[in-house]
């Protein structure tokens, strides 16, 4: 689906390029980076806890 929108744009170029937002949903990407963010925050908090517990 995303691809169709893109090829339409390629055959009939407009003066202003389409922002990618309208071309692709990227929901999977969003969820993936959110999982990554949760991993970062969780691991950091665990390490900080270890630091405090050894103080």
């Amino acid at each position: 689906m995303a691809r169709e929108a893109l090829s339409k744009q390629e055959t009939a170029p407009k003066t202003k390029p389409h922002p990618p937002e309208e071309e692709s949903s990227l929901r999977g990407t969003f969820v993936s980076v959110l999982i990554l963010g949760a991993l970062i925050v969780g691991s950091w908090a665990a390490a900080f806890w270890l630091y405090l517990s050894r103080g």
Binding site: L26, F30, V33
Partner: peptide, 25 residues
């Protein structure tokens, strides 16, 4: 330069998390 909506949210959340780390430290 154009940022995808989700990327804006992601970078804001990421930036906030980094600031939170710095504040705690």
């Amino acid at each position: 330069m154009h940022l995808h909506k989700y990327e804006k949210i992601w970078l804001s959340l990421g930036g906030l998390a980094l600031i939170a780390f710095l504040v705690v430290l």
